[in-house]
């Protein structure tokens, strides 16, 4: 393996790669995420890994581990920060532990379309955040593996924050989610995913929040029939690698890796945009009802999170809104 001492890799990286013939270079990276084998993200990650292996003639081998088999969530990002031969694929809010503004970038009620988010990750504002992440040892290869808006799934029709009063909603155990859903009016109940479906069947919680893909893939439509299109979060994953490990990779392989992850993201967004309508139709055929909500009211209810969430740059909400205004104007 590489990365024994990151300092070494940094100083020797360039010299060795120039001297050594490229045929000798071989790096095995382990890539971890929490998605299940049927989900598009898993397929996309496998496709990208295969294509990198092929295009680098086997020099860069990325072994993929779905379902959190090895380090996931905060642990995955920690592997990256600590310089392991590891690629972490997680929600950008996990980078927020190191550069808090990433939490704001995926904060509540920002985007109306996938394209808006993808455009945001290309702005100078986010480029500056990426530079700050690199100072912490995190090289961001992509932020654009979008997998859909998260909506509120209950039996009750939810249109305003008041409708969520007293509704127990399962959320992942994350500060951002708990605070957002509380601000939206619900009683956030953090539960592990494995207990969620039975907790819903048995009424320990009244509903969950998640995308239509989650809804269909886990047969949530069998137990909850209404989806309120709150679009409170846009679910997305980024791809992260240690800057030290990255710097030790010969430039021509770096380019291949970067290009493949970019292409993979574009491909996945296209696919999911295409599939979404079909998924909605299928859910409707099972009797699921969708309703629009008073989005302004929810935006208002959650706006304070950008002021109170720990570590965010003051005024970050306005900066994001300015960028969004430009993006929407185009």
């Amino acid at each position: 393996g590489g990365g024994e001492t990151p300092a070494e890799a940094e100083t020797e990286g360039e010299v060795t790669t120039e001297v050594e013939s490229d045929d000798d270079y071989k790096l095995v990276l382990r890539l971890s995420h929490v998605f299940s084998p049927e989900e598009q993200l898993t397929k996309s990650m496998d496709l990208v890994a295969d294509s990198i292996y092929e295009k680098t003639n086997g020099a860069i081998e990325i072994q993929t581990f779905p379902q959190g088999q090895i380090a996931a969530y905060k642990d995955g990002v920690e592997q990256v920060v600590r310089g392991a031969d590891f690629i972490s694929v997680e929600d950008p809010s996990y980078i927020g532990d190191y550069v808090p503004d990433f939490t704001a970038m995926v904060g509540p009620m920002l985007y109306d379309t996938y394209a808006e988010y993808v455009a945001m990750t290309d702005t100078e504002l986010v480029a500056d955040m990426k530079r700050r992440a690199e100072e912490k040892g995190i090289k961001i290869l992509s932020l654009d593996y979008v997998f859909g808006f998260r909506n509120v799934i209950t039996d009750k029709v939810i249109e305003t924050p008041a409708d969520l009063n007293g509704v127990r909603l399962r959320v992942p155990g994350s500060q951002l989610f708990i605070e957002t859903l509380n601000a939206m009016g619900a009683n956030s109940t953090p539960l592990p995913w494995g207990e969620t479906i039975s907790a819903m069947q048995q009424g320990v919680v009244d509903g969950i929040e998640g995308s239509e893909f989650t809804n269909l893939g886990n047969s949530i439509y069998e137990v909850r029939k209404n989806v309120a299109l709150t679009r409170h979060f846009l679910g997305a994953c980024g791809v992260y690698i240690s800057t030290d490990v990255w710097d030790g990779i010969p430039a021509k392989y770096q380019k291949i890796i970067q290009d493949e992850y970019n292409a993979g993201a574009i491909h996945m967004v296209e696919l999911l945009t295409e599939q979404h309508a079909g998924v909605v139709e299928e859910l409707e055929s099972y009797g699921v009802q969708f309703n629009e909500v008073d989005r302004e009211a929810f935006v208002e209810a959650t706006a304070h999170i950008y002021d109170t969430f720990p570590g965010l740059t003051p005024g970050i909400y306005d900066l994001l809104q300015e960028e969004l205004a430009i993006i929407r104007g185009q």
Binding site: G1, A71, D75, Q79, A84, F86, P192
Partner: peptide, 22 residues
């Protein structure tokens, strides 16, 4: 045998396997 990861990160697993509500 596999030195691509700082060894102390094995401790992540000590914590995650215990810190489970179920």
């Amino acid at each position: 045998i596999n030195t691509g990861m700082p060894v102390d990160l094995v401790l992540q697993r000590f914590i995650t396997s215990t810190a489970s509500f179920p």
